[in-house]
């Protein structure tokens, strides 16, 4: 059986919030080592990969691997019933039909428990190859979120260009064009504000801004986000989690 306790429900709430625009139904895979998820969006242009290692939980026990088929919208509704600061416990039997979600508010001595009906989710599990990326850029999540939001007011797509000078986001839409240039910088007092650019060779690719804005829903999970680009691979947008990560992959726009 699975029994997994998080000190703060906010972590799972934020994780589920950050994937619910992309994924409708998915399997949460629970194993001895932790909880993971891999799912594609309906249009098969983006893929989400989540890992929450067992050390990220206050208590974690999973005797044998369990697959929890979940409707993400339904899970969102149940998670909204708990407070951000509540202790959250997930429980499931070995062949579960429901996932039990318990919230404990220690200040008010309030315990609430909900059962989420599980479903069979037919999903192919794909391996993600180790990839040598041409460029990696780490920047503040708030900055990336602002860029994706601002450029989306002008256009549906963004061109990302990385070279040794820095990273440029630019777009050209019906009402006009825009661009933002970020140069590498290090901030010793506030390292989370630093911008780090690692480059093997310059790369320029275009992406759909709708998806980048969906990915930015994960901004509350980490101060920094890493973008990895290569001509031969989808864009990787990575947010580090306590003992894990949430990674979004997005195919570049082809043509136009």
């Amino acid at each position: 059986m699975l029994e997994a306790k998080l000190e703060q429900a906010a972590l799972l709430k934020r994780i589920v919030d950050s994937i619910r625009d992309i994924v409708q139904d998915c399997n949460f895979e629970c194993s001895e080592s932790g909880l993971s998820l891999q799912a594609m969006d309906n249009s098969h242009i983006a893929l989400v990969s989540l890992l929450l290692g067992k050390d990220g939980f206050t208590d974690y026990r999973c005797d044998r691997s369990i697959s929890l088929g979940v409707n993400v919208g339904a899970l969102t509704k149940i998670l909204k019933c708990g407070g951000n600061d509540d202790v959250l416990t997930l429980r499931a039997e070995d062949k579960p039909s429901v996932l039990s979600v318990m919230f404990e508010d220690s200040i008010q001595d309030r315990i609430s428990e909900y059962n989420l009906k599980l479903m069979d989710v037919d999903q192919e599990h794909m391996g993600i190859p180790d990839t040598e990326y041409s460029a990696s850029v780490t920047m503040p999540t708030a900055e990336f979120q602002r860029i994706a939001r601002d450029l989306h007011t002008l256009s549906d797509s963004v061109e990302i260009d990385v070279n040794k000078e820095g990273i440029t986001f630019s777009c050209d839409g019906d009402i006009g064009a825009g661009s933002i240039v970020l140069k590498p910088s290090s901030n010793i007092d506030r390292p989370e504000q630093s911008i780090n650019v690692e480059i093997v060779e310059p790369v320029t690719l275009s992406f759909n801004l709708k998806y980048l804005n969906h990915f930015c829903k994960a901004s509350g999970l980490s101060n920094q986000v890493t973008l990895r680009l290569s001509g031969e691979a989808p864009l990787l947008v990575e947010y580090k989690l306590p003992n894990g990560f949430i990674r979004f992959f997005l195919a570049p726009k082809i043509g136009d």
């Binding site: 242009i45 893929l47 992959f249 082809i254």
Partner: peptide, 14 residues
């Protein structure tokens, strides 16, 4: 469709 193919090709290529 071409973007879908690219994503699927990338993940199946292992």
């Amino acid at each position: 469709p071409t973007e879908q193919a690219l994503l699927q090709r990338f993940f199946e290529h292992i």
